[in-house]
Design a protein around this nucleic acid. Structure first.
Lengths: 229, 229
DNA sequence: GTTAAATGTCACAAATCTGTAACAAAACTA
DNA sequence: TAGTTTTGTTACAGATTTGTGACATTTAAC
């Protein structure tokens, strides 16, 4: 599949963590690791993953607390979470308490089981009208507002994001600055047409991953377009 | 575009090919089959399909090479292409998309998945209305502001572009320098009428692809026109 | 309230285009 | 053919358009 899937694993057991990571990466996931709750929250603030696997017993804010915090924030309120717990620990409590976790797994568990749970959750969370635009080595996940080039994540400001999206909806088509102002900035909003240049510049810069070349063509006296050659 | 839904399948696996064909036909497509790259190119030259499904590992020119060749030709530069690959490595995928493939499917795949990808691509490719002016070996894509002669891309400055476009809108018609100044440069803009000569010269030069001859006729004491003979 | 991120403008540099003039070549005229 | 007119060709300086980095202001995040 062409879909970008990123998973955060929060686990303080230094023997278990690499194992989980290994299995996830083998299955094509991009993995971020944290060993305590604080670290986890930082990473999530930075970038919201597609799914989080959190151990119940971690230092600092516990898995449960992390869970609660995540649920409170709008951005992460729907983030699929899997809680890991040791057998005999407070299994029922985890399940019974309404922590907001979407699933929980009892240690020890098999890689197969883990993958099954993950896939199940992801299917559920992304099945609702997943929209991805791809063009050459660029891809945009419209649901998550994430942009990738050559499988590397790109951070774009809102305007650059809209610009790129607009270009990709008609690859190759040339848009004048006025047209772009109209469709990206919005009808009736007046800004200098040269502002477009600056944002084009920013978009180019942001998308400039090593090993790629400028993908926006400028058509003198006409405007800009995606380079489709 | 018409509702002619024709798909070319290039696959050397004699077990897989009939399966794909069967599924496509069941969905109302007209299927053409090829088992190697050469055959595929011949079929495409004969008749450009609405979409091509090409296996990565085929004899003669590989899937990617075929892809590249198709992208270079103007007639097929926008033909939607799906690459099939047995290796599921990320690297291959990137390479596939870089080469110009529009989508990429890893074997094994389900008929459902295949159909989903096909429909998605067809929807995309038929939605953008193309404005193209063609005359002999010259063609202008108005949306993309691109000019070709003998399938070679030509770079023109703004004035030359407008000049050419103006000529092609009435092939054969003779325009005086004054008329050209009026319609290409614009009403009320005063420049020496001999400026037209210079731009005609530049246009001729730019369009002078090897194996072609001067396509602008000068009509002494009257003006210029496209040569329609 | 402090920090950070995003936005719109501007000024200057770099790239490209344009109009002209001057001369060469070709076409026409007598 | 010589002379005249028209067009081809080239070079170049000035004009336009675009690239780029910096800055102040606004907006959002925490």
């Amino acid at each position: 599949m062409s879909e970008k899937r990123e998973i955060l694993v929060v686990e303080d057991d230094t023997a278990l963590l690499p194992m989980i990571t290994y299995n996830l990466e083998k299955n094509g996931f991009l993995v971020k690791e944290a060993t305590n709750g604080e670290e986890a929250l930082l990473l999530i603030k930075e970038e919201i993953p597609s799914l989080a696997i959190i151990d119940w017993m971690i230092p600092a804010p516990s898995g449960l607390e992390v869970c609660r915090i995540l649920r409170k924030k709008k951005e992460t309120s729907k983030l699929p979470i899997i809680i890991l717990s040791a057998k005999g620990e407070e299994e029922d409590k985890v399940r019974g308490l309404n922590t907001g976790a979407d699933d929980y797994i009892t240690k020890p568990f098999s890689p197969t089981e883990l993958m099954a749970r993950i896939n199940s959750l992801l299917r559920r969370s992304t099945s609702s009208s997943e929209e991805i635009i791809e063009f050459k080595d660029i891809s945009i996940n419209l649901n998550e507002h994430k942009v990738y080039r050559k499988n590397k994540k790109i951070h774009l400001g809102p305007t650059e994001y809209k610009l790129l999206k607009h270009f990709l909806e008609n690859p190759g088509r040339v848009y004048s600055r006025e047209q772009l102002l109209d469709s990206v900035w919005g009808h009736g909003i007046y800004v200098e047409s040269r502002t477009v240049d600056t944002h084009i510049r920013r978009l180019r810069k942001a998308m400039n991953v090593p090993g790629t070349k400028n993908f926006i063509r400028t058509v003198r006296a006409a405007g800009y377009s995606i380079d489709i050659d």
